[in-house]
Design a binder for these strands. Structure first.
Lengths: 161, 161
DNA sequence: GCTGGACTGTTATGAAATAACATAACCAGT
DNA sequence: ACTGGTTATGTTATTTCATAACAGTCCAGC
């Protein structure tokens, strides 16, 4: 979390807690069952941490926060869980931050983010890349994945600045 | 360079050499002079390496290749040069590769890349983000920078695959 | 020629990610 | 249930990527 601004404490919170969190985890369990994948303990724990966070989490934040009583996880534990969560579409990596967020948009999609340099929030949105994808296809390029990340200031932080 | 394909040696080469390279470096000198910036020795050397490469270069590739007689540079030397080159628009960082390319498009622009997972080429293009930027502005978000990177297969590698 | 700012050199360290291999859990077919 | 294959985890170590901190140098403008 950057905290490059002067209005700490006024940032919005997006993390899930209590019942909302439980529901989200159960939904993930269900989607795993559908695709014959297993939401094992480390995977579930990492997803839980992501869902509960107010901003993108770095891998080593997850590693540090992993243990119930303060014991960190080993790096591969978390990186493997993240790989799984990305593969299933439960989480996304934000390349320009080296950080991870839980997926907040239903259904298969290209993930895109508006990242606020002030509050650190990363708002996921569904980009309109129709014309771009057409143009790429026209050159004979075959697209497998797209990364779209915008950096700047969210409306709230702009107002408080 | 990934080299995940079976047609090594048939990949195209994009690096500048000889007179083309000299001309590009002189052009960079001129643009620096215009903006009262200095293309100092380490900056010029790193730009030269980027311009001469056939694919994006990692920071430690640059560090290793830096010295005339095989002596590597110290990391800060190269990272500082890269920072400068990015600031002046002479180079771009490709987030999804942790690598750098020389800028191949004239004038101020949003950089976007088609990255071939086979040959490693990263083709720069000028994206058409009008509707996206409008949509972001409509939400009150103020954009400072955009990262757009597509991964896949270029036309050439698709044909050889 | 002095001075202030920009740049470089150097040492050290911090942060991010993965390799490699041993062990354990799951589950499908018999 | 056994068993053999597959998938996932645990653990140690290492590699890759990037920056902090500070001393010294260069250079433009006064």
């Amino acid at each position: 979390m950057p905290m490059s601004c002067s209005h700490h404490g006024e940032h919005e919170h997006h993390g899930l807690h209590g019942a909302s969190l439980s529901r989200a985890l159960e939904a993930a369990e269900a989607r795993c069952a559908d695709s014959r994948e297993r939401l094992t303990a480390p995977r579930r724990r990492v997803l839980e941490l992501l869902l509960g966070a107010d901003a993108p989490m770095k891998a080593y934040d997850l590693i540090a926060a992993y243990g119930d009583a303060g014991e960190p996880a080993k790096p591969p534990t978390v990186y493997r869980a993240l790989e799984f969560l990305e593969r299933l579409g439960f989480a996304h990596r934000i390349e320009s931050l080296n950080a991870y967020v839980p997926c907040r948009i239903e259904g298969g999609h290209v993930a895109a983010f508006l990242i606020c340099d002030c509050c650190g929030e990363a708002a996921e949105f569904q980009p309109n890349l129709g014309s771009e994808l057409e143009a790429m296809a026209a050159t004979g390029y075959q697209v497998r994945a797209v990364t779209l990340e915008a950096r700047g200031l969210c409306a709230g932080c702009r107002a408080h600045a």
